[in-house]
Simulated scan of single mutants.
Amino acid sequence: MKLVITGRVDPRVIQEIRSRRPDLSLKVWNESGIISREQLLAWSKDADLMITMLTERVDTELLEHAPHLKMVSNMAVGFDNFDLAALEKSHVLATNTPDVLTEATAELTMALMLLVLRRLRSAEDALRQYHWTGWEPDGFLGFELYGKTLGIVGFGRIARAVVKRALAFGMRVIIFTRRSLKDLPENVQQVSWEQLLESSDIVSLHVPLTPQTLHLINHETLSRMRPTAILINTSRGAVVDEKALIAALRTGKLAGAGLDVFETEPLPSDSSLRELPNVTLLPHIGSATVETRLAMAERAWHNILAYLNGQKPPDLLLPKLWPDKT
């Protein structure tokens, strides 16, 4: 059987694959940048198993090029790059890697809040570019996290990890999610969508990209937010209508934003986001720690290994397909 890995992974995982399953034929993308669509389709032709990155679309076109494909394991918690209907129709198993990137992404969420509120990027730029002439009582004034109201949209694993950190900073937390929450900690309250937008000093997004969350943040929702508020997005770029966000930031309807994800990645060179001084931009590094990327690769592989051993993969996205694979 042939296993195709579409991105660079920790060599320790490759070593484990070769050790545990020497019968597998391995093809791994080790070049700089991401694999091209053309190369991906070419590699898929004789693939039985695939470990994919979030940059690769697994859709009808790919599945038509991959007649032997039995399982695809996404090295990401999100799976909006998967066409689940097409996978189900083709009877191809699919998995993701939840849990393992929770702490890293929660840490980066808090870092973005600090970067924006404390104006850390502007302060460092001034120092590096020799514009800082010495301490002044009103130099680089920002705002504290302490005492601020953090509005969290969604309440999955990452959101819950952010709540713990926010409480440690002395913040008040309000949450919007459609399911009813019970036994929330002190200083944490579930509120309506309107209440969250209107009451938050910081709105942090922690929802998957679905038809329901596409452009969840738009002209209308931004108009409900406080002009002193900031927006943080470490989920998926298309949850935010970037044109609406740019307009709000330019006109002072929103004080700032911290973004790790974008509607189009990499961020286009002509994006107006690059020009705005009240935005902090990061290149999709929410899970970019040595510990987390190793854990993600291991989990993606262990899903494959479970299948090879005749066991149900722990992170199966289409459980209804499993009886057909036993």
Rank of each mutant, 00 (worst) to 15 (best):
M1D: 06
L3R: 04
V4K: 00
V4Y: 10
G7K: 07
D10V: 09
E16R: 14
R21A: 11
P22N: 10
L26K: 07
N30F: 00
N30Q: 14
I35V: 08
R37W: 05
L40T: 10
E61M: 11
E61P: 05
L63E: 03
E64P: 01
H65D: 03
P67K: 06
P67D: 06
M71K: 00
N74S: 11
M75K: 12
L87D: 04
L93F: 13
V100T: 02
L101T: 05
E103A: 11
L117R: 15
L120F: 02
R121D: 10
H131W: 01
T133V: 00
W135L: 02
E136R: 09
P137I: 08
D138C: 11
G139M: 05
F143H: 13
L150Q: 09
F155V: 03
G156H: 03
R160K: 15
A166T: 08
F169I: 11
V173N: 06
R179W: 01
R179A: 02
D183W: 05
N187Q: 14
V188Y: 11
V191D: 09
S192E: 06
W193R: 08
Q195F: 01
L196Q: 00
E198R: 13
H206F: 02
Q212S: 12
H215Q: 14
H219T: 13
H219M: 04
S223L: 03
R224C: 10
I232Q: 03
G237L: 04
V239Q: 02
L245K: 06
R250Q: 15
G252I: 10
L254S: 01
V261Y: 06
P266N: 10
L267S: 06
L273N: 07
E275R: 14
P277G: 04
P277R: 12
T280R: 07
T280E: 10
L281A: 09
H284C: 07
A288G: 07
V290S: 12
E298T: 07
R299G: 03
R299P: 00
A300K: 00
H302E: 14
L305H: 12
L305E: 15
L308Y: 05
N309L: 09
D315N: 14
D315G: 01
K320V: 13
W322F: 13
D324T: 09
T326W: 01
